[in-house]
Design a protein around this nucleic acid. Structure first.
Lengths: 259, 259
DNA sequence: TCTGATGCACGTTAATGCACGTTTATGAAC
DNA sequence: GTTCATAAACGTGCATTAACGTGCATCAGA
């Protein structure tokens, strides 16, 4: 790739930090095939410019509230970011990912590792914009008539396009989740799209903030046997968590993933 | 012909930079079988012209490859807005419009009248985002593999989708325009897409700021007989304007439209 | 002859990797 | 809970390599 120029390498690191990603020195060293000394020098320089916070083992983005406000406004809460970070950590090199519509999945777009030859497909305009802004991940857009509520295409034409993809890992959005009724969404066509989508993916993952367990929605898209992982927050009540586990949901949480 | 050879090499480097590619001096030297000194001289000259950023080992495009289009969004200058206003004024009620990729067309998205039962189709992520943000115009998105330079899908899959649309009025983007060579763009696949696009639309309109007449681009997309209107700025030199008119371009300008 | 592009020689500078001693985090032993 | 050992990460200095700019000679085309 474009690793031959040291300045562009520093630009790449800076872009990742600006995106909110953590930088691990040893990972960068391996990715660009240079010694960790060189990486440390880059990180030191970036920290000197105030672009990041230097920590033992790498660098952290500084969460300045002064960043483009428009970017932060609609941006996911810290809790969604935590779920997204777990989700981004599950991806394997070379996979074709699908990011379904949804604000939590939008957070994933910014946090995906940039060094694993991933490809991202999506039907969401916002997620497409986020991936394109990164510039380091090939993007396949699923077109069709845009549903203004969903913020992406979920019509028959979009469903038809799914047959052209062999998805490795799919992050499915859901409006409401419960142990009893499974996962549901508001729109009928959205539900049709998601059901088809899950059949086209080897691995299906749903991210659900704790609010999702309070919500109800009319159109069911599936239950435990349809997905491989359910990523939930640390504060989800243990009885809810137990109920989910008994029905067969494989749970992941930020706390457990950090360990 | 030595000098013309040299010029063409520099043009090639410049075109690559314009496409967002990074330039490695040693690679160029080997590719053209010249010494690195000559390459460095080229890069120094380009940097002096403000065409690139000189770095140790080569050169980087000024706008980082990651955000080619999104950077330009901000400066949808008043001049582009003026062209876009003329364009938006041409639409008739009930039409299916197509907004091709391009910052000028992005400006149209915000200026379209909201009360004429329009439908908008586009292959541009940024334009889709703009239309969706309005919320008052139905939107059809053309999907496919996203070309990061173009900022939208222009691959074979996108071209195939065009057959499903009967477009009433299409605003086609162009990188370079001239009376002699017609309208051209940087990317090959983009050119293929635009040529097909124009055959699917009853009316084709191109918006060209005056800079477009100074630019050159490799891939021709058409000439006077392929479009119905060419919208240009008021300050376009009258000899250029006359040359265009003689060849058969039907011109529209903000001044004339205001009258 | 003149111009401009080129390649080469020269001293200079930037980026890197390695060696060295120091600091930090972690976990086991007490 | 404190102490201590250990390994990983750290910073610094240094040598090496690649790229740099400049000046100059050369060569082809005008």
């Amino acid at each position: 790739m474009n690793s031959s120029l040291s300045v562009s390498r520093r630009d790449i690191i800076e872009a990742r930090l600006a995106r909110g990603q953590e930088i691990v020195a040893s990972v960068i060293a391996q990715e660009f095939d240079i010694s960790e000394d060189a990486v440390r020098r880059d990180l030191r320089a970036l920290a000197a410019e105030g672009k990041c916070r230097r920590v033992y083992g790498g660098a952290l983005p500084l969460v300045t509230p002064s960043r483009p406000i428009s970017e932060r406004i609609g941006k996911a809460s810290e809790r969604k970011m935590a779920l997204a970070r777990v989700a981004a950590g599950t991806v394997a090199a070379g996979e074709l990912l699908f990011l379904d519509c949804g604000s939590t999945n939008l957070a994933i777009a910014a946090l995906l590792p940039g060094d694993r030859k991933l490809t991202v497909a999506t039907n969401s305009i916002d997620i497409a914009a986020a991936i394109m802004k990164r510039g380091d991940i090939p993007l396949i857009l699923i077109g069709g008539l845009i549903d203004p509520v969903v913020g992406g295409s979920v019509d028959a034409s979009a469903v038809a396009r799914l047959d052209e993809l062999n998805i490795d890992r799919c992050f499915v959005g859901a409006c409401a989740v419960s142990a009893e009724t499974g996962m549901s969404v508001q729109e009928h066509s959205d539900a049709l799209f998601k059901r088809k989508l899950m059949t086209r993916s080897a691995i299906n993952i749903v991210l659900a903030t704790s609010e999702k367990f309070e919500e109800r929605a009319p159109h069911r898209i599936g239950s435990a046997r349809d997905i491989d992982w359910l990523i939930v927050e640390d504060d989800l009540p243990s009885n809810t968590r137990q109920a989910l586990a008994e029905i067969g949901y494989a749970l992941l949480t930020p706390g457990q993933s950090a360990a």
